[in-house]
Nucleic acid binder design. Structure first.
Lengths: 164, 164
DNA sequence: CCCGGATGCTTGACCGAGCAACGATCGAAG
DNA sequence: CTTCGATCGTTGCTCGGTCAAGCATCCGGG
């Protein structure tokens, strides 16, 4: 530890709690909405989105994992679930025989198309309706920085620098 | 649905993804840090914090649930875990014989005191070091509004208002 | 060519959280 | 006082996720 703890100011604490609490409620609400409306979990929905944006509507498992901040095993199980539902198909990789592609099926694309409007409406209602354009830009820039500070230096040692 | 879907603008989409991704990474990092440093999950840590702030260092289960955006059953299990570790004690409620208090033990207070500096340092390193005071105020106000828009009107019907 | 370490995906064991259901208790209405 | 609906906390079930181990494959050094 570098020195005495610098506790959060009341303002920081309030911001931190509002951020945590609202995020938890928001994700939960989106999850429920998707599940009720389209029979998809938020994770599954996001997986479909990634695939739909990828060239050839397919992505290697590792890339899917990297893009989602999830572990490989989590991706495996999610894809298995989606495959069982017919929304995704596994395709072997020719260049690397270890590799696996997850490929969006037509049914998957249809499911995504059906689920998207409700999901977007929910995100708008709960999040963006409370933000003006300046907020959006600020949020983007701010959380972009936070993300970069996290996923590049993944290790916890960085959390409490030794001296400087 | 009120009308054609208003998709997210590229800016909104970027903000949304940065927000989601960084939050996921952040919470995960905090969880790992706490677990490694103090043997507590983030949920457990938060529970101890709430109790430490409550009068008499005790809170009813329902209030604990309400404060944490968690379900009653989740609180039951968390408290059971903490009780098994000796950090919390269950105390029956005199006014309401259905009720249960969770009360912080001295060992619990000590565990919290030991865990807090590292946790706060981690929150600073990953979050507040990227924010200036104006950002903090803005975040607080903004997420406060989002939270209020979510936990008061808990129902999903509000997500897509019929007309107005 | 062969071998050893690294990488990619999967699987098994475990854990934490939510939902639904349950028994116990409260409180208000008759 | 009795009764009926609502509330509190707990529990069974299931789901989704991580961790660690495993097998197959790749790739670079001898």
């Amino acid at each position: 530890m570098a020195g005495p703890t610098r506790w959060l100011t009341p303002e920081e604490q309030a911001a931190w709690r509002a951020y945590l609490g609202s995020t938890r409620l928001l994700v939960h609400a989106l999850d429920r909405q998707l599940e009720a409306d389209a029979g998809l979990s938020f994770t599954e929905y996001e997986t479909l989105v990634r695939l739909s944006e990828a060239p050839g509507r397919r992505l290697r498992m590792r890339d899917l994992a990297g893009a989602s901040a999830a572990t490989r095993s989590g991706v495996t199980r999610t894809v298995t679930r989606l495959e069982r539902a017919g929304l995704v198909r596994r395709v072997e990789c020719e260049q690397d025989r270890r590799g696996m592609h997850a490929e969006l099926t037509d049914a998957g694309a249809a499911a995504l198309a059906a689920a998207a409007p409700g999901h977007v409406a929910s995100v708008r209602a709960h999040l963006f309706d409370h933000l003006d354009p300046a907020d959006v830009g600020r949020l983007r820039e701010l959380f972009g920085r936070i993300r970069d500070g996290l996923d590049v230096t993944g290790e916890g040692a960085q959390a409490v620098p030794p001296a400087a």
